[in-house]
Design a protein around this nucleic acid. Structure first.
Length: 368
DNA sequence: ATGTTC
């Protein structure tokens, strides 16, 4: 039985998030809860935490965006060669439904059609984005080479999830069971897990379609490097015991390298998990984590930062976000320092940094 | 987070 938080003196964790972590740790069957350095308050359950539970699984500890995660793609684009204005113009249709053949794609993936088919290939709102990035600094030449990356080529990082599909699954579950857990050998647990796994697959496919759409719009193509989920539940064996591991805004560190994104105005980090990931329950931070609530952002920033200044980052890159409210809610100032979050993971011996990545073009939305 | 938000 243990509860802990991976953090340091440099970091700051909101007490309300710690209270939420404690509350969730008191749920029946719970054996361990770990807050990541990006821990912050969520809707009942905190964001940036992993929970290991015996016999029970808790859909609200996964949340509504089942399968949400980060996917990274290699491109053949070079920073000095792209015309930013032209690219921004070419991306104008990215909010529209994708005009590819969704029926055939779902069929190929062995997936069921649903009322959410036409959301496939769309980024969504909130903190979701698709971002072209350049290599800012290589921090581990060997690991960098092993990933077959080229320092001069741009990368595309996609953060999105299962859109309305995942949301409908949690809503359906909550209507029947409220916040109660599901016993692992029940029909209800099987039903939830089937729907959850379907939403995970859908979300991963969504990230791939978003990347292809994004790059095709620019007359380019890309190849997948990694895809790491941060909202899901899965069964894991540790020693002789088995647990339901719930990750809520917490990245799976048991699937190789991953990107820990900063805010849309700061660096992101490509990292490799170290060998032993059992003490952190195979989980690391999924991003910088919010410092301010969405509702606080506008009055804190409005006087000092104009809309147009928030559409440029300090690296000379651009942010496509026609939604003024979202622009303030997602301002870099609303997020914690990514260097502190990643630093805490490095100091805890959980990851090794491979490269820092700087934002070149961030797509949020063209819709106002 | 969300074809949102009565």
């Amino acid at each position: 039985m243990s509860i802990s938080i991976i953090s340091s003196k440099k970091n700051w964790i909101e007490s309300r998030a710690v209270d939420q972590l404690q509350k969730c740790f008191e749920l029946p069957g719970m054996k361990a809860a770990i807050g990541m350095p990006d821990l912050h308050p969520g809707n009942g359950a905190p964001i940036g935490a992993v929970f290991a539970c015996e016999r029970f699984l808790y859909p609200h500890l996964v949340g509504s965006d089942i399968g949400c995660g980060m996917a990274l793609f290699r491109t053949n684009m070079k920073k000095g060669r792209i015309r930013i204005e032209k690219c921004i113009d070419s991306l104008k249709n990215l909010d529209l439904p994708w005009n590819g053949d969704i029926d055939i794609l779902l069929q190929e993936e062995g997936m069921k059609s649903s009322q959410f088919d036409n959301s496939l290939g769309t980024i969504g709102g909130g903190n979701h984005f698709a971002e072209l990035q350049c290599i800012n600094e290589i921090l581990d030449e060997e690991a960098f080479a092993r990933l077959q990356l080229n320092a001069s080529e741009l990368l595309l990082l996609v953060h999105s999830g299962s859109r309305g599909l995942g949301e409908s699954i949690l809503r359906w579950h909550t209507a029947r069971f409220s916040a109660r857990g599901l016993y692992e050998d029940s029909v209800d647990a099987d039903d939830y897990l089937w729907a959850h796994n379907h939403a995970r697959t859908w979300a991963k496919l969504n990230r791939k379609v978003i990347a292809l759409r994004f790059l095709h719009s620019l007359g380019e193509s890309g190849q997948p490097i990694l895809d790491v989920c941060h909202n899901h539940v899965e069964k894991v064996e540790v020693g002789a015991s088995s647990f339901w591991l719930h990750r809520k805004g917490a990245a799976d560190s048991n699937k190789g390298p991953l990107v820990i994104p900063g805010s849309r105005g700061t660096l992101s980090y490509l990292v490799v998990p170290t060998e032993d990931q059992s003490k952190n329950l195979f989980t690391v931070a999924h991003g910088a984590g919010r410092k301010w609530s969405r509702s606080d952002c506008k009055h804190r920033l409005r006087r000092r930062y104009s809309e147009s200044s928030l559409r440029r980052n300090k690296f000379g890159g651009r942010i496509i976000c026609a939604d003024k409210e979202l622009l303030y809610e997602e301002a870099p100032q609303a997020y914690k320092d990514i260097d502190v979050v990643v630093g805490d993971l490095i100091d805890a011996g959980l990851v090794r940094p491979v490269a820092s990545l700087a934002p070149v073009i961030t797509f949020k939305t063209n819709a106002s």
